[in-house]
């Protein structure tokens, strides 16, 4: 197998892999929103309500705790 074949297989599988990832991501986005786990559209509010004193859409310390819960 020469470098050309490797290149061909590499690009083929990498493309498949990334397409699967992209579609997986689309499914992930819509499914987690449907299940009520996440609301992606609320992040659009970050641009509108952006005073330094306004409440974050997702608070940093709070979500840190959430992360730790997920790990368990």
């Amino acid at each position: 197998m020469d470098i050309r074949d490797l290149q061909g297989y590499g690009s083929f599988f990498m493309t498949i892999f990334l397409v699967v990832m992209l579609y997986g991501y689309i499914i992930h986005l819509y499914r987690s929103e449907k299940k009520g786990e996440r609301d992606y559209e609320k992040y659009g509010r970050i641009a509108l309500d952006d005073e330094v004193t306004s409440t974050p859409v997702e608070d940093k310390p709070a979500s840190k705790r959430e992360n730790e819960k997920e790990k368990k």
Partner: peptide, 26 residues
């Protein structure tokens, strides 16, 4: 940032913006 902020309208679809981002990168 600037169009939503100036118009007072949140992005039409935040999910579409995320997908377009990864599509563009790839």
């Amino acid at each position: 940032y600037f169009l939503p902020k100036e118009s007072g309208q949140a992005i039409y679809s935040y999910k579409l913006s995320l997908l377009s981002f990864w599509g563009l990168m790839f």
